[in-house]
Nucleic acid binder design. Structure first.
Lengths: 195, 195
DNA sequence: CCCTTCGCGATACGATCGTATCGCATCAAA
DNA sequence: TTTGATGCGATACGATCGTATCGCGAAGGG
């Protein structure tokens, strides 16, 4: 057999470069040539790993989902109480707006393709569902208030966190305010800021 | 004087066509030629009213803001109590995801340009601020719970509404669920669904 | 009735797009 | 060391991009 390279790693590198461009200029700024330049490789190489542009975009969307998940999970190094885990998870989402605007922006840019491309659409739906289930489980585990509808609360918290992240992104409010608002809402279902 | 036409109307028509394309394919799908085709005019005409593409995009962003405002205000034909107004306003935001996905999608597509272009960025920030102020005023006017932080509540409600709209958009939940979640949260600050 | 002035279509241009194709190193197997 | 499959760069091509420029038709004032 001839030369062997880490196929997956190269693909990820290129897709990552595409995400960076996407965050900076939107999907409009993503072209094969620019991705190659951003990744520091030749245009031919990009073509080698992604025969068509659609392949590259799909791969980028999948990578994006992984990256967001990684970012959120990275905020939970030491798992404390369920209440703590819940709060830290939501905080991580809110902080996406400030710490990883790249991911948020790319996520928004892909929304348009999500309504057109069934694959990407399913990616969004499934991703959202998974997070919602996890949040709901944490709400149930916390359960300091009786008679709480965990599913509804999860939707409130998740929707709120995402809305706040966008608000932070456009400078409508800063992270401190957003965190305060989130804690305010968390307080209502019995989750206090300190641990 | 030679021929006279409604300059502003033509500009609006063209910008509207751009928004439609933007919602369908994202900003990547907006080109001078396609906008002309979508608007049913010649490419030269588009160029006549918008010398550069950036002009067209800026105008589209401004039109988008107006359209969203119009959509929300259209949901308040008969102004009832402040509580009713508050609920209907937020409902209108949530229903953007189902009834006018074009506007939501275009809004997301422009987010990337909002972080780059100071003009568009200010558009987003100012728009968000205005809505927030109005919501906060309505919360204050409703005020069935004592000791409520109207600003924080407004952020919760607005963030939630936007997050829910996105959720509806990608099919994560349907409008009925989203409305139920919104009403659930509204109930907490003393706003009931019936009037 | 002519003539100026503006609205608008048509065409042209270089740049860049996505994609196809070719050719040359490179390295494992024989 | 020969060999052949493979990684990857280079080049080419038509389409489409954004923009510049020209010219005709129309319409109202002289």
């Amino acid at each position: 057999m001839p030369k062997q390279v880490d196929h997956a790693a190269r693909r990820a590198e290129i897709a990552h470069a595409a995400l960076r461009l996407c965050a900076h200029d939107g999907l409009a700024g993503v072209s094969m040539g620019r991705v190659a330049q951003e990744a520091g490789v030749s245009k031919g190489l990009v073509q080698h790993y992604f025969p068509a542009k659609a392949d590259l975009l799909r791969a980028s969307a999948h990578l994006l989902r992984q990256e967001i998940e990684r970012h959120v999970r990275a905020a939970l190094p030491d798992a404390g109480s369920p209440a703590d885990t819940l709060r830290r998870t939501l905080l991580a989402v809110v902080q996406l707006g400030a710490r990883a605007p790249v991911l948020l922006l790319a996520g928004h840019a892909f929304l348009a393709t999500a309504v057109a491309d069934p694959d990407v659409r399913e990616l969004y739906r499934a991703g959202g569902d998974t997070v919602h289930r996890e949040i709901a489980a944490l709400v149930t585990a916390t359960a300091s208030e009786p008679g709480l509808d965990a599913g509804a609360e999860a939707h409130v918290l998740l929707g709120l966190a995402r809305g706040l992240a966008d608000g932070v992104l456009v400078g409508e409010l800063d992270v401190t305010e957003a965190v305060a608002v989130l804690d305010h809402q968390l307080g209502r279902i019995g989750v206090r800021a300190n641990s």
